[in-house]
Amino acid sequence: MEDEYEIRVGLSNYFPWSEIGFKIVGQFENGKQALDYILTNHVDAILCDIKMPVMSGIELAKIVCTSNINTKIVFISGYREFEYAQQAIRYGVKNYIVKPTKYSEIVEIFSEIKKELDSEHHNMIQSLFESKAIYEESGHGNAISAIKNYINENYENVTLEDVAKIVYMNPYYLSKFFKQKTGKNFSDYLTEVKMKKAAEFLKNPLYKTYEVGSMVGYKNPKNFTRAFKKYYGKSPSEYISSRSSSK
């Protein structure tokens, strides 16, 4: 129809859509053409008549709704019947403009839609950041597990540089990273592992104290005794005696 064509062209070409944040990506004579475009292109919003050839606006809205296509639909129509408004609400139509349309009404409705789209975009970006953070945290957790496992298996002679190669990190960065994620210095954690291993070995009467020290990486028995006493508050021999007296 001539008046419908003039309205469509007029709204597409002369309404200042860019001022409220929109860009016209297509004009279509009927609902089927509009649907075909939507199915292959992302469209934020549609302004369409309810009564269109081939496929009505209601049919288009129903397919968009049931297909979970994230496109906002606004109806423009000369029909005031309550039935159409009911169907529009049922299929998630954002608003219903009755002809003759007012400039201010279109601006108000699409400005609100733009705010809604911006909010959805912000939430999506936020969600992506959160997912990225969770992914990175998981990756960091895996790195910490790898570091601890390597120390537990190679505590006798392990160095910060050895571990840095395993997790592909700079030694200086690894030291800061380990402290940040565990709350402990790398050297303190390594000492903790050594002392706990030493305590386990000391439970075996077949091992001499200096042998235990050597097994956990202390070639000098005095250094081992000093480190053990600092950690447990008693020397290796005192630790053995206290275990024997507690039995």
Rank of each mutant, 00 (worst) to 15 (best):
P100I: 03
D118L: 15
E130N: 09
E120A: 12
V98E: 00
I50M: 00
Y135M: 10
N95C: 11
E137N: 10
F75T: 00
G57V: 11
T66H: 11
A88C: 03
Y91H: 03
I109K: 11
K102G: 01
S145F: 15
T101Q: 10
S127D: 15
S67R: 11
Y103H: 07
N95I: 01
G57N: 13
I113R: 00
I109L: 08
G141N: 12
P100G: 05
I151S: 06
E81A: 14
M124N: 12
F82G: 02
S145N: 10
T101R: 00
H140E: 13
I58T: 01
S104T: 08
I46S: 03
F75I: 01
I144M: 12
Q86V: 04
A88P: 00
S111M: 12
E130V: 05
N68G: 09
C65M: 12
A133V: 13
C65S: 15
E83F: 14
K72H: 02
I97F: 04
P53A: 13
I73C: 01
N95P: 10
Y91V: 08
I50G: 00
I76N: 10
C48I: 03
A88I: 00
I125P: 15
N68V: 01
T71I: 09
L128C: 10
S127Q: 05
F82C: 04
I73R: 04
A85F: 09
A45E: 14
I106C: 02
E153T: 05
Y155L: 01
K94F: 11
K94L: 02
A133K: 09
E156C: 07
H121W: 04
K102P: 13
I50P: 00
I147R: 08
E136I: 10
M52Y: 08
T101G: 07
A133I: 10
I76H: 02
L47W: 06
V107P: 06
K62N: 12
I46T: 03
G57D: 06
E59C: 06
Q126R: 11
E120R: 12
G92H: 04
L128G: 03
Y135D: 13
N152Y: 14
L117K: 13
S131C: 08
R80P: 03
K51Y: 08
L47Q: 11
Y96S: 04
I89P: 14
D49V: 01
A133S: 05
K102H: 15
E116I: 05
R90Q: 13
K102I: 09
I63G: 05
K102W: 05
V98A: 07
D118A: 03
K62R: 15
M52E: 03
A45C: 12
I144W: 04
F75Q: 00
N68H: 03
E83V: 12
I58F: 04
A133T: 06
E59Y: 09
N95H: 10
T101N: 15
S127Y: 11
E116S: 09
S138H: 04
D49I: 01
I73E: 01
N70R: 03
M124W: 15
